[in-house]
Amino acid sequence: MPGVRPRGRGALGNAVGRFEAATRLAFEDGWEPPEERVLRTEVRTEAPRSAISYNRSPDLPFDRAINPYRGCEHGCIYCFARPSHAFLNLSPGLDFETKLIARPGIGVVLERELRAKSYRVAVMALGTNTDPYQPIEAEYRVMREVLEVLRAFKHPVAITTKGTLIERDMDLLADMAAQGLCRVGVSVTTLDADLSRRMEPRVAAPKRRLQTIARLAEAGIPVRAMVSPVIPGLTDHELEPILQAAREAGATAASYISLRLPREVSGLFQEWLAEHVPDRAAKVMGRVRALHGGMDYDPAFGKRMRGEGPWADLLARRFRVAVDRLGLSVKLPAMRCDLFAVPARPGDQLTLF
């Protein structure tokens, strides 16, 4: 990308989104020497009109979620959420990790939705699209805002994150976990610190994430180790060591998801492979296509998370053997929905009984 030095970023380019009417191509015209610059993170705020988003996907274990942020500063090159930035007329490339949108005030909206007489409680998922504990959460505290509302309503919540900032909220999480209202999934993609730095540049090192698992577990919060994504030909050999390290840290459950390359993610990931691991690029993509019937990605329900064929079957068998050996659960006990209660507001009339 001429004139830009994307240091500390995952994507190498910033191709326009698929909904743009025009394509812009940066190039060096030879008149002036290229001026290198470091890309800074830009954050805009959005006044949320709704907090809860619903889905009917049959291969997901939840039907509702909250997204405190759009875009993710972590910059994971493999992130399946990158294409969502195109809906904002921004690039799924560098824009996704540098032009972010925070949603402060979402707690008020969430409270209104939970108070609706038509609302029926079920586990709320957080971190299903972009990470709620990405670095900008330290300043904007949108995730903390959401958790405070969920705790007040005694609403069950399942959190997925790579961010060590979750440790800040252990006071809320431990209180909810003690009531059967909270569990956390921590994603560990590789134990190789150098590979992690290049592939997920603004995420804590693997050793630090294992420390987060340990601290959450010590606080009584059920933790699932998520080996996600498993990248065939690059990180798949680490499946068992990651599960072993997570178990030693205190995780009680585990899961895995194979690499997903929807829409623009495929091109971005292949650029990254050519730059960082050119000797393995062909092997990785060959294995990926073997998982998806010769395609870079198959979005079909039931196939998109695991793939199919011999490689998918082998990975599934390896996972089952490892979790059985380590005593890790695949399913955690169901969280409690029966405690859900709408808290009284100042000025509300008290009930007689």
Rank of each mutant, 00 (worst) to 15 (best):
R224W: 02
Q244A: 14
R7G: 14
L210C: 04
A251H: 12
A11S: 05
H276C: 07
P232H: 08
L173F: 11
L195M: 08
L259G: 10
A102G: 08
R82F: 09
G17N: 05
W272S: 07
E271L: 03
D171W: 03
A205Y: 04
A102P: 08
T128A: 15
C72H: 01
R115S: 09
L12G: 05
N89E: 11
L100M: 06
T161S: 13
G105T: 03
P278R: 00
R215F: 00
G267R: 04
A281T: 06
D59R: 07
L147T: 05
R7Q: 12
H74F: 15
K162Q: 11
T45P: 06
S258A: 13
D313R: 03
P241I: 06
R168I: 07
R24T: 15
V149H: 08
D298E: 10
G180I: 02
P92E: 09
P278K: 00
S255K: 05
G309V: 00
F87G: 11
R320F: 02
V123Q: 11
A204R: 02
G8C: 06
G307K: 00
E97V: 01
M199K: 04
A344K: 06
M124G: 05
R224H: 01
V108H: 02
V188Q: 08
A204H: 03
G105L: 02
D95I: 00
V123M: 11
G185D: 11
A290W: 02
V146H: 05
T160W: 09
E275L: 10
R289P: 09
I66V: 13
D59I: 05
V123Y: 06
T98S: 13
A158N: 07
A214R: 09
R103Q: 10
R304K: 14
G309F: 01
R9Y: 05
P2T: 04
S50K: 12
S196P: 09
G3H: 00
R325N: 04
A274G: 13
L315R: 13
P6Y: 01
L94K: 00
R263D: 15
Y119W: 12
V16C: 12
Y133M: 08
L339I: 03
S258H: 08
F269M: 06
R40H: 14
R304I: 10
G163I: 09
P156Q: 05
A249C: 13
G185R: 01
Y54P: 09
P104W: 06
R224F: 03
